[in-house]
């Protein structure tokens, strides 16, 4: 595989996506909401009178936290506990929605969209190999998805730290190990998983819109994590995160393998007309 050719495809697709509001809007809006609106919620909670914030809302979550965290919480005021749990646990799984959604929106446009706009024929006629094409298109879904994920994490951390700086007497809550593992470990493998599935879906549907609609299914497992943690069933600690990375990595290999098999250029045009 010639990486230069893959980059060429990447640059071309990126140039197109950059000018396509249908694609840009969702991948900018959602991270913006998460990284700005969540801290605002935290801020309003932390300013509320103490008696209003009972840790009862998070009882299930708190009860299942590891012992060392429980010990830490025991020494905090109820207000601090509230903020601590919201910042570090409650909002965390939401940030995994970003790589899933962003990469699937971009992959839908790059695969199903390119075919729908009928530009795929000239592209397939070039001497760029299947693997170079696939690599370029995977990268154009992966890299921007990771950029918005990391950027929203950075914005969230910054705002959160500014807001909570005083509450925790100068201790910065973010970044911490859990979040770093999640953003730099789980997010990439979950993004690749989502891209692979979108490639497969794109091969089966007519256009960009349908591909995107079907890929919404990909959000279900992530929402499972959101509710799992809310109810205290799954706590995203280092072990769970590591296990998640391991499982997703295996799934990635299987899905990419299937995606490569679906992406047979000699049949892409024959299937759809």
């Amino acid at each position: 595989m010639n990486m230069q050719k893959a980059w060429l495809v990447f640059k071309k697709d990126w140039l197109e996506i950059k000018r396509n509001w249908q694609v840009l809007l969702p991948i900018i809006l959602l991270p913006l909401i998460f990284s700005v609106v969540f801290p605002i919620i935290i801020s309003s909670v932390s300013n509320a009178p103490t008696q209003d914030v009972s840790s009862g809302d998070f009882q299930l979550l708190t009860a299942n936290l590891p012992a060392d965290v429980q010990a830490l919480l025991a020494e905090m005021t109820p207000n601090q506990v509230m903020v601590y749990i919201m910042v570090l646990y409650f909002f965390a799984p939401f940030f995994l929605i970003i790589p899933v959604m962003a990469s699937s929106v971009m992959a839908s446009d790059s695969f199903a969209g390119e075919r729908e706009r009928k530009t795929i024929e000239a592209l397939l006629a070039t001497p760029i190999s299947n693997s170079e094409l696939l690599m370029g298109k995977i990268l154009v879904s992966f890299i921007p998805a990771m950029i918005v994920t990391i950027a929203s994490f950075a914005v969230y951390s910054t705002i959160v730290d500014i807001i909570t700086f005083e509450i925790f007497n100068g201790i910065l809550l973010l970044p911490n190990a859990n979040w770093l593992i999640m953003i730099f470990g789980v997010a990439p493998v979950i993004a690749i998983c989502s891209i692979g599935l979108t490639v497969i879906i794109s091969a089966k549907v007519k256009g960009f819109k349908e591909a995107q609609q079907i890929s919404v299914i990909l959000l279900l497992p992530v929402l499972g994590l959101v509710f799992g943690q809310m109810s205290g069933l799954i706590i995203l600690g280092p072990l769970v995160l590591a296990a998640l990375i391991g499982i997703l990595a295996v799934v990635d290999v299987a899905i990419i393998y299937a995606g490569v098999r679906m992406f047979q250029r000699e049949e892409i045009l024959a299937k759809n007309n």
Partner: peptide, 8 residues
Amino acid sequence: NPSLYERL
């Protein structure tokens, strides 16, 4: 089809 990228 001309098969050109309209946004480019």
